[in-house]
Design a protein around this nucleic acid. Structure first.
Length: 425
RNA sequence: GGAGGAAUGGCUGAGCGGUCGAAAGCGGCGGUCUUGAAAACCGUUGAUGUGAGAGCAUCCUGGGGUUCGAAUCCCUAUUCCUCCGCCA
């Protein structure tokens, strides 16, 4: 959500930005907002005047009553009644207009960073940098489910009976590996100065409304029957929700948080659930990082955040690359976004394992996350990024650490979380 | 789950239909004093919207209502406290 003042003062910039994102159908919204905003301010002005009159006259009534001048008081009451009707209508109008404005403001995209490459969709995303040598072994790399099954590490059949497609039982060393990765990720981030959080796994509708659009909610969120609660789709939902309508003292910035949570997603959108495997599923677990910072610092934090993920994967011998989201693929709230992709020796391509986003002040404006500064309050900048999200991450892990005999190497940093094991077989 | 009580500015807390955007204290900021600091004393100190500005409007947990007028009365949601019950 951008500042409406920007639309008032520089509508061309806002329109130019919409064009860069190939959302020309939204251009009309800018002019509509300008017109509605004008009407709203006129209505508010008149309303303020009427309210002012009412306040003054009401005070006079009080004074007259005190003096015992009943008749004059009654006459003044009638005067106020004359304003009441107009004011009632006007207040409805003010509310309607401000709703209309907000509806439009919610879908006008955030101003993208000048560095964002221009492109229509994800096919035009740009590789930024590769880390590690993408190795293709001289033996055949099986499908990840087959690797897991050979190690007695997954039971999809039972999961389909108990819960349906898109769920899994992990077992034995694979389940332990899953936990080990999360524990290692937690400590990895704590070592880098982040504060560890375990947030609520369910949130109220008021928070859901704040953190996502209606269509996102429909496509992602599971609702709890008979309660005003939803299962979170990512810990970002509860972690950012935590700051809704708060004023943070400037001295407390930056807030650098790392949170663990299970994530629940309907995945109703374009791709749907994977038939076989754990790439796209209804339930997974994730270690996340969240930063709330001063506007001048968000660009630096953005780099630091995705570097954390790159370093994490590299410490587990997994080759990765960074892929920058082009303008057309960038979600409306984001200023800039980079995906971290891991190398798949089986597919011989990179696939997404994490996503790092700088939301500028748009998320903070929408949620009312303000900072109390020396010279007044301002909206914070917010960022989020994935540290690691297994079991999807296990795909990359297993494929890259696989030996010809089907055993899996455990990289050194993970061994202490695996009871000292160096190999799973 | 049942029965009561409560929610006020950065914090503590008064106010319980008009003179309340809100006493007082703490904290913050500025100053006097001091070589400097502390103490003491004096002054100042909420947010948002709108307007060139003076100002005006809105905000006393959220939502709704009564009234000419609501922090104050009523309804409702949420949260907290006390007691009872239940339960890892």
């Amino acid at each position: 959500m951008i500042d409406i003042k920007l639309i008032r003062t520089n509508p061309d910039l806002v329109k130019e930005n919409i064009k860069k994102k190939f959302q020309d159908e939204k251009l009309v919204l800018v002019d509509e907002v300008i017109e509605l905003d004008k009407q709203f301010r006129d209505a508010k002005n008149r309303g303020d005047f009427l309210r002012s009159q009412r306040n003054t006259l009401s005070k006079q009534i009080g004074a007259l009553m005190a003096k015992g001048q009943k008749e004059e008081a009654e006459n003044t009451k009638k005067l106020v009644a004359d304003y009441a009707k107009e004011l009632a209508d006007l207040e409805v109008k003010e509310e309607d207009l401000s709703k209309e404005i907000k509806t439009r403001m919610m879908v006008i995209p955030n101003i993208i960073d000048p560095s964002v490459p221009i492109g229509k969709d994800d096919s035009e995303n740009v590789e930024v940098e590769r880390f590690g040598e993408p190795v293709v072994p001289d033996f055949e790399v099986p499908y990840h489910v087959d690797i897991m099954e050979k190690l007695n590490g997954i039971d999809l059949d039972s999961a389909r009976r108990t819960s349906g497609n898109g769920f899994y039982y992990l077992c034995g060393d694979i389940a332990r590996l899953h936990s080990a990765i999360l524990s290692y990720a937690r400590d990895f981030m704590i070592d880098r100065g982040f504060t560890y959080y375990i947030p609520p796994f369910m949130i109220r509708s008021s928070v859901v409304d704040g953190v996502m659009s209606f269509s996102e909610m429909e496509n992602m969120m599971y609702k709890i029957e008979g309660e005003d609660l939803y299962l979170i789709g990512t810990s970002e939902h509860s972690m950012i929700g935590k700051f809704m309508d708060t004023i943070i003292p400037e001295s407390e910035l930056p807030k650098t948080l790392t949170s663990y949570s299970p994530c629940f997603r309907k995945e109703v959108g374009a791709h749907g659930i994977e038939e076989r495997g754990v790439y796209r599923i209804h339930q997974f677990e994730k270690q996340e990082m969240i930063v709330v910072c001063h506007p001048d610092e968000s660009k630096d934090w953005f780099i630091k955040l995705y570097t954390n993920t790159v370093d994490f994967f590299r410490s587990l011998d997994i080759p990765v690359r960074t892929l920058e989201c082009c303008s057309g693929d960038l979600a409306d709230l984001k200023v800039k976004s980079i995906d971290v992709e891991a190398w798949s020796p089986r597919q011989q391509k990179y696939f997404e394992v994490g996503s790092c986003s700088n939301l500028g002040d748009a998320q903070a404006r929408r949620l009312g996350i303000r900072v109390k500064g020396k010279d007044g309050n301002y909206f914070a900048h917010t960022l989020n990024n994935t540290v690691v999200a297994p079991p999807r991450m296990l795909i990359a892990f297993l494929e890259n650490n696989l030996n010809a005999d089907g055993s899996i190497n455990i990289p050194t940093p993970l061994q202490m979380y695996m009871g000292g094991k160096k190999v799973i077989k």
